[in-house]
């Protein structure tokens, strides 16, 4: 496809990419041993993910104290979404194919406060690893009963909850025989716009983790594992579905109590 961007004319193999990933890990471990602070964020400049080569800023992000509108976030409410949008398995005439799951968890800010009544959006591939998206070329079946798009609002405790189908892994064109671990895309808002987050939730024990440059772009293993849900038998429902729990932590807030009262 036209959007493949690589520095070399030959497409890399998985082994080539593994070597690049290993070299970055080695460099990171050496920096840690030298006393560097562990990284908590995703690297923007991560060459094993080829599409990032021309799409990351080369200059450091500029530190700025949030001001004005940045100290507030858009407000969403019952008017914005339908309660049925939280169930991705009932959007069509029949049941989608695959393993029915519930994914639930809590959205909190960096101080541990629940993010209440805020919008959570998700999208994902179907059980066969195929998106409904018109540009998904993976020769796996589209499921006429699954769009793979959901929305909900968090409750007063910051909890969100989706019923869906466990997505399949899917191939992509980063390198030869490249496969993404199964994931659900998440979009989140906090109480301040600087907390805006788009990320991906993964499933425990995925054999593709070590091979995936997008997952590995979070070079610190503890930070990376924050994207992996846990299987939770208390979420699993008798003769109905299995359950996963995944909590999300947004960054800290900056608004002062005085502004809060306004």
């Amino acid at each position: 496809m036209a959007e493949l961007m690589t520095t070399t004319p030959e497409r890399a193999t998985q082994d080539d990419v593994n070597e690049e990933i290993a070299a970055i890990v080695k460099e990171y471990d050496a920096a840690l041993a030298d006393g560097a602070a562990p990284e908590v964020a995703t690297r923007l400049d991560y060459p094993p993910y080829r599409s990032s080569l021309l799409r990351h800023p080369t200059k450091d992000l500029h530190h700025a104290d949030p001001e004005g509108i940045e100290l507030w976030a858009p407000v969403f409410g019952e008017r914005d979404i339908d309660a049925l949008e939280a169930d991705l398995t009932i959007q069509h005439g029949g049941d989608p194919v695959g393993e029915r799951i519930v994914v639930t968890g809590r959205v909190i800010d960096g101080d541990g406060r629940p993010v209440r009544g805020q919008l959570v959006e998700v999208w994902q591939a179907n059980a066969a690893g195929r998106y409904i998206h018109k540009r998904d070329q993976h020769p796996a079946p589209v499921d006429p009963n699954f769009t793979g798009v959901g929305r909900c609002l968090t409750d007063d405790d910051g909890q969100y909850r989706f019923t869906t189908i466990k997505p399949g892994p899917y191939p992509w064109k980063n390198h030869l025989n490249a496969w993404r671990p199964a994931h659900v895309h998440f979009s989140l808002f906090g109480t301040e716009f600087t907390q805006r987050l788009v990320t991906q939730m993964y499933f425990p024990g995925d054999p593709l983790f070590a091979l995936d440059p997008i997952y590995q772009s979070i070079v610190d293993p503890r930070a990376r594992e924050r994207l992996v849900a846990t299987y939770d038998h208390d979420v699993t429902q008798h003769e109905w579905c299995t359950g996963y729990r995944w909590d999300i932590v947004l960054t800290g807030t900056h608004r002062t109590p005085v502004e809060e009262d306004e």
Binding site: A41, Y49, E121, W123, R135, V198, T199
Partner: peptide, 19 residues
């Protein structure tokens, strides 16, 4: 900050039906 933040990930190529 008490709780380390959940890292971000790319929006990817397939967000058009969702966002």
């Amino acid at each position: 900050m008490k709780y380390p933040p959940t890292p971000g990930q790319t929006v990817g190529p397939f967000f058009h039906d969702a966002l």
